[in-house]
């Protein structure tokens, strides 16, 4: 098939980079540099895994009032360019930033968001957690509580930002915000649901497999 784009076709390889614990600001800049490289076709699609120090991030449409007055003063807040409202990142939370050119899969952000959700749902089910979507509320939910949040930016069909999955973060940090501007529903984590410690590395490796499954199968080159 002839690709209408004047770029050379790339391999469907997806790189996985695990940055470990990394300052928010630093990995944010790193994402931006990868996005640029990706759009210049210098690198393959990449999935970044990272964990952050405690921060609150606000999307473009976020309402500052959703950080409540009692929030800990030492915690940094960042106004960033993803969609969505306020969220929390911190230790015990697995953050994933896919830098993906959607033109190689499907030019559809709804497909992309549902795919990210599916990857997390599939990952959680390997840990015997039956999570689900909630109509109209992007993210992954366990009963009435959110376990994974999504917020994405797309620039000429290349993605940045992504998802955060609560493995065992200190959920108290969520008490100082109205996560994603949703008043009625709470937030949970894998270890809260299972009432046991979860091995972070096994979550990463499961998620990695599910991620590659979904994206490789949907790559245009495999159709």
């Amino acid at each position: 098939m002839i690709n209408a784009r004047n770029t050379t076709s790339r391999s469907k390889k997806i790189e996985i980079l695990d940055l470990g614990m990394q300052a928010y600001k630093k990995s944010w800049n790193f994402q931006k540099s990868l996005l640029k490289k990706r759009s210049n076709n210098e690198i393959n699609d990449t999935l970044i895994f990272v964990e952050h120090e405690p921060v609150y991030t606000l999307g473009k449409n976020a309402n500052e009032n959703h950080i409540l007055q009692n929030y800990p003063e030492d915690i940094k807040t960042f106004h960033i360019e993803r969609g969505g409202d306020v969220t929390y990142h911190g230790p015990g939370q697995l953050v994933g930033y896919p830098i993906i050119d959607l033109r190689d899969y499907k030019k559809s952000i709804s497909w992309y968001m549902r795919t990210l959700e599916q990857i997390i749902i599939d990952t959680l089910s390997e840990f015997n957690i039956q999570s689900d979507r909630k109509n109209g509320l992007t993210g992954v939910w366990y009963k009435n509580e959110k376990i994974a949040a999504l917020g994405v930016r797309v620039s000429k069909w290349i993605t940045m930002h992504g998802f955060s999955l609560n493995i065992n973060p200190d959920l108290n940090y969520y008490k100082s915000i109205i996560p994603c501007g949703i008043f009625e529903y709470g937030v949970t984590s894998m270890s809260k649901i299972l009432n046991e410690d979860i091995d972070k590395e096994s979550v990463k490796s499961t998620l990695k497999i599910k991620f590659l499954d979904q994206f490789k199968n949907n790559h245009l080159a495999s159709k």
């Binding site: 999307g59 473009k60 969609g83 968001m113 917020g151 994405v152 797309v154 620039s155």
Partner: peptide, 29 residues
């Protein structure tokens, strides 16, 4: 509509990012 990066009267190149829109939880250039 989140933001117009250009004003009326500005010149734009083809494929230059000039507008930002939001849908779901995604902001797109």
């Amino acid at each position: 509509i989140i933001e117009w990066r250009k004003n009326v009267g500005d010149t734009v190149d083809k494929d230059e990012i000039f507008l930002e829109i939001g849908t779901d939880k995604v902001d797109s250039e």
